[in-house]
Design a protein around this nucleic acid. Structure first.
Lengths: 192, 192
DNA sequence: CGAAAACGAGGACATAAGTCACCGTTTTAG
DNA sequence: CTAAAACGGTGACTTATGTCCTCGTTTTCG
């Protein structure tokens, strides 16, 4: 698990062996079985998590029980609920493993320590956050301006590979469209 | 214009007189007439902008000419297109003054200088970004889970005061709902 | 391995919301 | 000040999408 993280971070940022040592000393490794939760709504999200293997989803439930997927997290991506992580407030999100997954996690205290002691880490983190904000904005725009088919097409373009890995109803839940509508769109597209 | 900014920033963060001096030396003040653009799609967003007076909207246009409002910015708020500002890439957004407005702006170079020389400014900026990300996520969730009436109600709760300041069709454009639907919802709510 | 669950497709029907058109009132700008 | 534009409301009609259901296939897991 940490090995995958080391490989990833060395490719992403110019880290020294000493940096890696710091990462390792503070890291918590964990394996999550399929269908198990890494975070449950109501809990405080205590970790910043790197997915070294597997696949997870972050979803949120309305009062009447509808699930809406906010994010898919394949290997080599980060997961956290920034709101909860930063302020120690209960999260509204559930994070569930869709496949058996392996993750590496850091507490807020430790990650702050890493920020102070690994040069460039904060800048790298800032870049990820701004990328995330950008994608989230694009998603808002898509929600405002696109019909179901356009949303589907944009999804495939923006997140290639995800479609093949999750059941259709989860793509539907991510897009805010019914499973049936998506199924029909796809059928129509095969034809032409 | 700078006076309003000074008042704002002193309330928000513990800044010294020296800090204020730095802010002032690098600030560019500008007045924008109603209906004029602060930024036009295709241009690079060269400034981080503080609204000291007035009211602006950030919107984006689809190929077939539909406008979608991404953000409203009343006085004491910040505007920029982070994507464009950070990477010097052409923006897809238009920023238009809905009322005669006064703004204070800083270039990227100058603002970076401020980050390096005003203690706590980066942390303050980070907090604004995370607040922004949180709101944007809430908006995505709302788009996924709410019908037109719920979106309208949430809008009023989340952005009180905006409704009274903009024509209804702009609220509709922000929510991704037609003007007529909003008009009917509102009528129905008055009745009961 | 085999029963049970999950899944994708598709038909029939319901409905929330969009579109178009019109009108009276208010606001804007020359 | 006045003509033109913008605005909000509303009726009539259309439509994209949701909901409910059934069915055959695939996947899961004890």
């Amino acid at each position: 698990m940490f090995a995958e993280f080391e490989k990833y971070i060395r490719e992403q940022a110019p880290v020294t062996d000493g940096d890696i040592k710091l990462f390792r000393e503070t890291a918590i490794e964990r394996t999550i079985r399929r269908k198990d939760l890494l975070l449950q709504a109501g809990e405080i999200c205590r970790y910043k998590t790197f997915v070294s293997k597997g696949f997870l989803r972050t979803y949120r439930t309305t009062e009447n029980g509808n699930e809406h997927i906010m994010q898919f997290s394949p290997e080599n991506s980060w997961i956290t609920d920034p709101e909860s992580f930063e302020n120690f407030t209960p999260s509204v999100y559930n994070i569930e493993a869709l496949e058996r997954s392996e993750v590496v996690m850091w507490t807020k205290k430790d990650f702050n320590y890493l920020f102070d002691n690994i040069s460039g880490l904060k800048a790298y983190s800032d870049k990820l956050i701004s990328r995330n904000l950008h994608r989230t904005r694009e998603r808002v725009f898509s929600a405002l301006s696109s019909n179901a088919e356009e949303k589907y097409d944009e999804f495939i373009k923006t997140y290639p590979g995800i479609l093949a890995r999750v059941p259709l109803h989860m793509v539907a839940s991510f897009l805010g469209v019914s499973r049936e509508t998506l199924s029909r769109i796809r059928h129509a597209q095969v034809k032409q």
